[in-house]
Design a protein around this nucleic acid. Structure first.
Lengths: 331, 331
DNA sequence: CTTTAGAATGGGAACGCTCCCAATATCTGA
DNA sequence: TCAGATATTGGGAGCGTTCCCATTCTAAAG
């Protein structure tokens, strides 16, 4: 493993010049640059990240923190896609990704401790709880970070997100316009920002349309198929004619229950999902759902973070990506 | 963020003494140790990993490399369990985990480059290809590493594994003993060690029992449900009366195809899986399968790696964990 | 031909730690 | 009581970078 000093010697220049070359500093003679680059690649030289970090530089490592259990992580299609897009984008930008798939509370403490002093240039966090201590820790630790999904608190944070309120409105309004009178909803995980945003929007949309909100038509499904099934079982006795499930997995669970009860979807009960999961289009009936640009979300988060790391802009960065209601067969 | 020097000052000792305390060096007076530990915890001090690494110490970070596409990663139950067990064990031992979920070839180069000079104390690698360049790179890079699954080459490596040959023998022999005459097999991904081991053992077991090996009864299923379905479709015309699927996902796919053809499982065709995935017991029919101690595999790999990092033993370490044929309904 | 700004380069210092060796304090036994 | 261990501690050197401040070189301007 060669050091910068050896490269310098071989190229007949100083340590500093090599450093400039590998860090894309413009103040280097073009020929010198080329010569150095040649030596670098012929020696297969890679700067030592620890030394780099210590000297005040960057490690080139970005953390991706998803503080939910592995069980959920591998069940919801949201995460694989997100992970893949973040990973790809980072590789493309010549960065490595360090993951934390945190388990519940136990880990949270250690995560924040690790993050605050570590080998990371910055962190991307997804799937927060309300008032998540991670955000606070991150905020005070000075480390650049970007959230995927908004954070509702008075801390100023950088984020990328979709417009949950607007999508939910679109979904619920569509159900209203197609004549549904008793529109139920299956929520995700209580205490989760996404869940709350979607539920709030569901309520306000009904209210705005002058329709009553029946609490019996609201049940929690935990973002998983079985949860959707169980939630539907709770709602069913109260005679819904439509269900807005806040993700596709739960929509599928709900449909399974409805079928077992001899209901037809969408004739008797319309079902709208959320995510546009890979299976949504091929499912029978094809799922009417909201398409989130998950890959784009990950990509933008990486770009935003890299920009923050490299340029340290003063202002907060936020980005809200468009997402659409996709009408197929289930509603 | 405090440094070791500040802690030393506050505790009224030298930098060296603090270093000894946080590294569990026995040569410290008990009272001094306590005093230092107090200051450490009251300042919430965590040693800087970059500095540590640079000074020849350890970072406390372990890499987990799984060089397959994210798509497969999130479909096979093997990986979530493995990841979870590795993560848990590392947390337990006060280590962090850095993941690489490598995509195909493109990444392989960069992975090896990263590994060879990085912030990691050691690496755990799973799911290798035959003759994987990663192993070679790792071997020459001097970084401690442990494989999950054997590596068939002349490089000496540390590994934990199950006895694929023995399990496969058990499964195939069981089918023979229950009177099956035309035993097919659905293999995983060609060029994969696991697949080859299981296929070789399938062949030799049949041979040893004096039964012919019909190549038409062998098909590749890529370790996924759809692949199992397709492989079964290829095999079916050749009238098998039993199938050894080399993982449970493919077993389920095979059963789905058999059912569509009006076959009964196990009466007409027996099916044996591999993995004892979470769903295996509750599936209808409950899957006869081979139970791999996946969690234990991960745990042992971590323990082995940590031992190698800390004690640098001369001899190679290897560990073969027991796994059993679990007889349920499908065969 | 001299001056001067700017381009290109070199080298010291520092980042926060571990390792090693030396120094001091304490204890042992004859 | 004193040499010789042994337990405990301190501080220098160095890990491989980046950053900053010279210094040298070049070319344009006067």
């Amino acid at each position: 493993m060669s050091t910068i000093e050896e490269i310098a010697k071989q190229a007949g220049v100083s340590r500093s010049t090599v450093s400039r070359v590998i860090n894309d500093d413009p103040n280097v003679n073009e020929q010198t640059r080329e010569r150095v680059l040649e030596v670098v690649s012929s020696n297969n030289y890679v700067p030592n990240r620890a030394a780099r970090k210590l000297a005040g530089g960057r490690t080139g490592v970005i953390g991706l923190v998803i503080p939910i259990g592995v069980s959920r992580l591998f069940v919801e299609p949201f995460f694989p896609i997100l992970i893949q897009s973040v990973t790809n984008r980072c590789n493309h930008l010549n960065r490595s990704v360090m993951f934390w798939l945190g388990e519940p509370e136990y880990e949270r403490r250690s995560i924040t401790q690790i993050l605050s002093n570590d080998l990371l240039d910055g962190v991307i966090v997804s799937s927060l709880q309300d008032k998540d201590p991670i955000v606070e820790a991150l905020h005070y630790s000075q480390i650049p970070f970007v959230l995927i999904g908004r954070y509702r608190d008075n801390l100023p944070v950088n984020f990328v997100d979709i417009d949950n309120e607007k999508c939910t409105q679109a979904a619920v309004n569509y159900l209203i316009q197609t004549g549904r009178k008793r529109i139920a909803t299956i929520t995700g995980v209580a205490g989760t920002l996404v869940s709350r945003e979607r539920l709030d929007a569901y309520r306000s949309t009904l209210a705005k349309a002058g329709m009553p909100v029946d609490e019996k038509l609201i049940a929690e499904g935990g973002f998983v198929e079985e949860g959707g099934y169980a939630a539907m079982a709770n709602i069913f006795p109260h005679k819904p004619d439509a269900v807005f499930a806040t993700n596709d997995a739960m929509a599928v669970g709900a449909i399974r229950y409805l079928r077992e009860q001899g209901m037809r979807v969408p004739e008797d009960v319309a079902v709208v999902g959320f995510d546009d999961a890979p299976f949504a289009a091929s499912y029978k009936p094809a799922l009417t759902t909201i398409s989130q640009p998950i890959g784009e979300l990950g990509r933008q988060a990486v770009d935003m973070l890299v920009k923050i790391i490299d340029q340290q802009p003063e202002e907060l960065m936020t980005q809200v990506l468009p997402s659409d209601l996709i009408i197929r067969e289930s509603a």
